[in-house]
Amino acid sequence: MQTSELRVALFTGNYNYVRDGANQALNRLVGYLLAQGAAVRIYSPRTETPAFPSVGKVIGVPSVPLPGRSEYHMPLFIPPSVKRDIRDFAPNVFHVASPEILGHRAITLARKQGRPVVASVHTRFETYPRYYGLTFLEPVVAAVLRRFYRRCDAIFAPSESMAQLLRDQRMNYDVGIWSRGVERDIFSPEVRDLAWRRELGIADDEPVIGFVGRLVMEKGLDVFSDAIDKLEHRGVRHRVLIVGEGPADEWFKARLPNAVFVGFQKGADLGRAVASCDMLFNPSVTETFGNVTLEAMAAGLPVVAAIATGSQSLVNDGVTGRLVRPGAISAFADALQHYCEDKDARAAAGAAGRAASERYGWDAVNQELVEAYIRVIRQRHDHREPPTQRPR
């Protein structure tokens, strides 16, 4: 089977109405598939004000704002008109990217049509309750996720550490890797801009600790701010640069009154902001990969991160940065202090990270998923002949 013979139906709760690492990866995948001659149709909630233009044809599905997080939309069901569109499109593989109602309904539809279905895992939803005082719900969420992923022919994690966790959690018996790439022309040490830092009131010799991402509690904002408090109490010279926006914006600003907040950045502006830091601090344990970690490495920054899925597969402890036990405030502060006070250590770790980032290219990682599509299609074909496909 050739790539050009693929007909992929992609189902996701967020394709482009809020920008995040997951949907940017999905848009890149669709662009790669279309460039290789494959046919793709995306089924997702839509809004009148998307965060960025979508790649490929998007068919809207009914949705409502998610309670407590109204910027996100919760798909409700697959209406008859969309089912007809799926039938006419005649996909030979279903790809579900989020474990909610739309994903469940898509799996059911794929099973009725005798089509293989794969899932990509983009975040650790089972960890979210702990950030909202509902830790007791984690086993329940994990059980719901297990039921979802076990209905799929195969599932794909963005990092080996996440893949191993999924195996340990018995989410599926066929767990593969769909990694992530990095735009090295955007994320590079060469775009570091001291003049831009000066405009923000940051001196050339001040070590800058960067945070990049959506400002939501599950990104570990409490751990980040507590570790910064430790540095300030120790009298360690530093500045904090926050790149991003989100529901916890005001909370984070109140916790870090001396930090510089530059808001949401994208493209070349984001690359400049990252490269103009001196280190990245990523205490989150919810990522399955950590795009911002890879982007910081490509920009030549050491990374201080939690020992968690994603970071474990990217950061070489003591070489490209430091890995610290989740929530260990003093240990995080120790690692940050080391890089704030030792310029040579920063440079060495940054150079090592830059070199390590070179093996991550978007075309290569997307081609691996394409090959996985073809493998699961053949596996299902070997067990049961699928219905006759409609011509392209």
Rank of each mutant, 00 (worst) to 15 (best):
8 V>R: 02
13 G>E: 15
15 Y>K: 04
24 Q>P: 10
28 R>W: 08
28 R>N: 05
30 V>F: 04
35 A>G: 10
37 G>Q: 04
38 A>R: 03
40 V>Q: 02
46 R>N: 09
47 T>E: 09
54 S>W: 06
62 P>T: 02
72 Y>L: 13
75 P>T: 08
78 I>V: 13
79 P>I: 09
82 V>R: 03
82 V>Q: 08
87 R>M: 07
93 V>E: 00
99 P>F: 05
99 P>R: 07
101 I>K: 13
102 L>H: 04
121 V>W: 05
122 H>V: 05
123 T>D: 03
124 R>Q: 14
134 L>M: 15
138 E>C: 11
144 V>E: 13
145 L>M: 14
150 R>C: 00
153 D>I: 01
161 S>T: 11
165 L>S: 09
189 P>Q: 09
193 D>L: 01
196 W>D: 08
200 L>V: 01
206 E>H: 01
207 P>G: 11
209 I>P: 01
210 G>L: 05
214 R>W: 00
219 K>I: 05
228 I>T: 03
229 D>T: 13
245 E>S: 15
245 E>L: 08
261 F>H: 01
264 F>H: 10
267 G>R: 08
283 P>L: 07
292 V>C: 09
299 A>I: 01
304 V>Q: 05
308 A>E: 05
314 L>R: 02
321 G>S: 03
326 P>W: 13
330 S>L: 12
331 A>D: 14
333 A>P: 09
348 A>G: 00
349 A>C: 02
363 D>C: 00
373 Y>L: 06
375 R>N: 11
375 R>H: 10
379 Q>T: 03
380 R>C: 02
382 D>F: 05
385 E>N: 03
390 R>I: 12
391 P>D: 10
